[in-house]
Amino acid sequence: MIPLSWYIIFAAVLFCIGLYGALARRNALAILMGIELMLNAANVNIVAFWRYGTFAIRGQVFALIVFAVAAAEAAVGLALIISIYRRRTTIAVDEINMLKW
């Protein structure tokens, strides 16, 4: 039916697209979106290996913990972005380059 390699290659492409988004964009929110893409790609990878392996339940547990970590990281990241926007009125990451002004 569907060989495992299809899922792995899909996850690899998604990860590389997210990597480009995280490295090349100037807007902090766009970088956060790239990070979410990378997390989702890793999650697809984990669940694919769980399905094509021996059905040990730890694959799904791993994926659930990744969900929780992604939610926590998105919340803190967005709070940071709002805080930076309040002080500097900019969220372009190459303009936030001084520790104190």
């Binding site: 090349a24 964009r25 100037r26 807007n27 929110l29 766009a30 972005i81 709002i82 926007y85 009125t89 900019t90 969220i91 372009a92 990451v93 190459d94």
Partner: peptide
């Protein structure tokens, strides 16, 4: 909330 910061005209990539 932060839409005023970067419009579509400024550079999106570094």
């Amino acid at each position: 909330l932060t839409q005023r910061a970067m419009g579509e005209t400024s550079m999106q990539v570094n």
